[in-house]
Simulated assay, not measured.
Amino acid sequence: MLNSLHDEVAAKLRDRIFSGDLAPGSFVDEPALCAELAISRTPLREALKVLTAEGLLRHEPRRGCFVSEVTERDLDDIFPVIALLEGRCAFEAANNVTDADLVALEQLHDRLNRSARASRINEYYEANFAIHEAIITLANNRWLAQVIGDLRKIVKLARLQQLHAPGRLDQSLSEHMAVFAALKARDAEGAEAAMRTHLTRQRVALRELARNQKSRLSA
C-alpha cells in the first residue's frame, strides 16, 4: 500500500512540475503538501526521493527539496546523448520492423504531415511523440527506453517549444520523413543517422529560439 501511495504522490507532483504549477527553483513545502494531499510525511518523502532520482528535484541538506532548473549547458549536454540513444533505437527498429509495423507508422506520419500542413503544433507534437515512442518500442531494448525516458523528463522540465522557431515545423517534418524512408528501406545505418540529425537539429532550433527571446527582451 505504501509503495502505491508514494508512486501516486510522485505522479501528482511530477504533473505539477511539468505544468509549471511547481515552478523551476521553487521550494517544495512538505507540511503544506501533506495537508493538501491528506498524507503523512513518509509517502511524501518517498515520492520526493523518486523525483530527486529522476532529476526533477534537487535536495539541499537542512533546507529541503527544490524544483530543478534546466540550464542551456544542461541542454547542450543532454541532447547529444538523446541523439545517440534514439539513433540507436532507429538502427534497431530498422532491423526489427515488419510490414504491419510500417503500415502503422505510415498512419502516424500521415497524421504528422496533416498537422504540419495545417500548422496545428499541438497535434504535431502528439503525432511526433507517438512516432518516437513507436520507434523506441520497435527497438525492443528496455535499457535504451529507460534511459531515454529519464532524459526526456529533464528536457520536458525546461518546457521548451522548439517548433515555434522559424521554419522548424517544415524542417522537422522533413527530418521525420527521412527517418521513415530509411525504416521502410530497412536501412539501419541510414535510420540511425537520420534520427541523430533530427535530434541535433532540435537543439539548434531551441538555441535559436532562446536567442530570439533574449533579443526581444533586451530590445
Rank of each mutant, 00 (worst) to 15 (best):
S4W: 04
L5W: 03
H6N: 09
V9G: 05
A10W: 02
A10F: 04
A11V: 07
A11N: 12
D15Q: 13
D21I: 09
L22C: 05
P24K: 08
A32C: 07
A32W: 11
C34N: 07
C34R: 14
E36A: 15
L37F: 13
S40E: 10
T42S: 12
R45F: 09
E46R: 15
L48E: 01
T52L: 10
A53G: 14
L56T: 05
R58S: 09
R58T: 08
E60M: 12
E60V: 14
P61T: 11
R62K: 11
R62I: 04
R63F: 12
C65T: 11
F66D: 10
V67W: 04
S68A: 15
S68H: 08
V70D: 07
V70M: 11
T71G: 08
R73L: 15
D77C: 14
I82C: 01
E86A: 02
A90W: 01
F91T: 01
E92W: 06
A93S: 05
A94S: 03
N95V: 06
N96H: 15
D101N: 14
A104W: 03
A104T: 05
L105I: 02
Q107G: 15
N113D: 13
R114K: 12
I121P: 01
N122K: 15
Y124I: 03
Y124P: 02
N128C: 09
I135Y: 01
I135R: 00
T137S: 06
T137H: 04
A139Y: 02
N140P: 05
R142W: 10
V147I: 12
D150N: 11
I154T: 15
V155K: 03
V155G: 04
K156T: 07
K156L: 13
L157W: 05
Q161G: 08
Q162I: 05
L163V: 07
L163S: 08
D170Q: 15
D170T: 13
S172T: 13
A182F: 01
A182M: 01
L183D: 00
R186P: 03
D187Q: 11
D187C: 10
G190P: 04
A191V: 04
T200I: 06
Q202R: 07
V204F: 08
A205Y: 03
A205I: 06
A205V: 06
L206I: 13
R207K: 14
L209S: 04
A210C: 07
Q213C: 09
S215L: 14
S215K: 13
L217Y: 08
S218I: 12
A219V: 08
A219Q: 09
